Amino acid sequence: MSASPDWFEITRRNARSVQTTIGWIFWDPGATRRYVELGLPDGFAEPLGYLASRCAPLAAAGPDAVIAAFGTISQRGIRAVFDLLEHDPRRFEACRQARDEAVVEGLHQHAPDIVEPLIEFGAELWRVVEQLPLMGRVFMAAHLALPRPDDSLLSGWHAVNCLREWRGDTHWAIVVAAGLTHPEASILHNAHMDYEADWLPASRGATPEEIDAGWDALVGKGLAERTSDALCVLDAGRALRRQIEDDTDRATTLPWELLGEARSREFAATFEPPCELLLRRVDETAGPNYQPASRWRD
């Protein structure tokens, strides 16, 4: 045990497992099948079901509130799912319940070694979550207000999800403070991950016009360059994206400090192996670029 824990490194390491424990379900066929059964259109049930199930705790506030909470996710997709579900919070909640069924089924099937750790850590993680400041974390607060599942596995998963949404709310505050719009943020993130041109903003539903406007804005800020035949993010843009990631890690050390160094390191060691299986599942169901927050950077 170190005399002075490096909470930045502990946070950066555990953020990956937190993201992976939650994010794999977004593309899971078990969840998609359930969304189709609830009336979402086959062929579009995966993205629409992800939007509906994740935003269910905030759905009563309407699409504009959800657009604000979702950061770089396409507002067209969010408005489409609200229209499809007739702005009825009960239908959003049905999607969330269907997702939860798929979570329990999928964890047992694809990463069984994560089941007992989620059960074991669950009560401790809820005590941590209950102590986190809610100011500015609207989406996390909406999740925290949900009834806690009776199933101990699902309860542990929801505690991890609250950690994920708390970090996400914090991250978007930092992005906004950096003066970035959603296409600008996605373009910089795409360069940060060294993905092929414009893959990430396009995957999140940005239109070609929005992407072009994002590039124009970045060029105007000196963060990108446009030549006669190419667009590229400059070193200043990459440095800003790295700073945003580091600032997010520095601003979200509190959950791990509250959990304590020993248990935080145990969390890392215990969750990382089954999370590798869940990330492999994402590779199979979505593709190797998806869920970039689970993939090692640099």
Rank of each mutant, 00 (worst) to 15 (best):
G214N: 09
T253V: 10
G106L: 03
L132A: 09
E210K: 00
V128F: 06
G30L: 06
T248R: 12
I211A: 09
L146W: 07
V103K: 03
G156F: 00
F8D: 07
P201Q: 10
L58Y: 04
L200I: 11
G23K: 09
F121T: 01
D6P: 04
F70R: 02
I22N: 05
L85H: 01
L223E: 09
G287P: 02
V103T: 06
S264I: 07
R76T: 14
L163A: 06
G179K: 05
T32I: 08
R33V: 10
R148P: 03
R16P: 01
L240N: 07
T170Q: 12
P274E: 05
E225Y: 12
F271M: 13
P147Y: 08
I10W: 05
Q75D: 15
G23R: 01
E210W: 02
G39Y: 12
P149I: 04
A191H: 05
L259D: 03
A206N: 10
R90A: 15
E124V: 09
D150F: 11
L188A: 11
G106T: 05
F26P: 00
Q131R: 13
H87S: 15
G23M: 04
R79W: 11
T270L: 08
P183I: 03
A217R: 04
D6K: 08
R54E: 06
L146C: 05
H182F: 15
W24F: 08
E184F: 07
G156A: 01
H87M: 11
D100V: 05
W7I: 00
A80T: 13
L278S: 07
M135H: 15
T181A: 12
C95V: 03
A31P: 01
R263S: 06
D150H: 09
R137L: 10
N161P: 11
L223K: 03
W24D: 04
I119T: 11
P5C: 08
L254W: 14
V128W: 01
L40C: 09
Q19G: 10
A59P: 00
L163G: 01
T20V: 13
P117Y: 04
V66L: 03
D113N: 09
L259C: 02
L125Q: 01
R281S: 14
P147F: 12
E257A: 14
G30Q: 05
R238G: 05
A15G: 14
S155W: 00
G136Q: 06
R295E: 12
A202W: 08
P133T: 14
V176R: 15
A60V: 04
E37C: 06
F271A: 09
V160W: 01
T252F: 10
L51A: 11
C55D: 13
R281P: 06
A59H: 03
L153W: 03
S228I: 15
F26S: 07
P149H: 10
R127G: 14
S294W: 12
P183V: 01
P63F: 07
Q291D: 14
V115F: 01
I211S: 06
R16A: 02
Y195V: 12
L125P: 00
P273N: 12
G220A: 08
H143E: 11
E105P: 05
L240A: 06
E101C: 04
H158V: 01
S17T: 13
T252V: 02
P255N: 08
F139R: 02
T248C: 11
R148M: 07
P117E: 06
A213H: 13
S74F: 08
Y35S: 07
R54I: 06
I73H: 14
W296S: 15
L125S: 02
E272D: 15
S53Y: 04
R242D: 14
T32Y: 08
T285W: 12
D151H: 01
D298V: 14
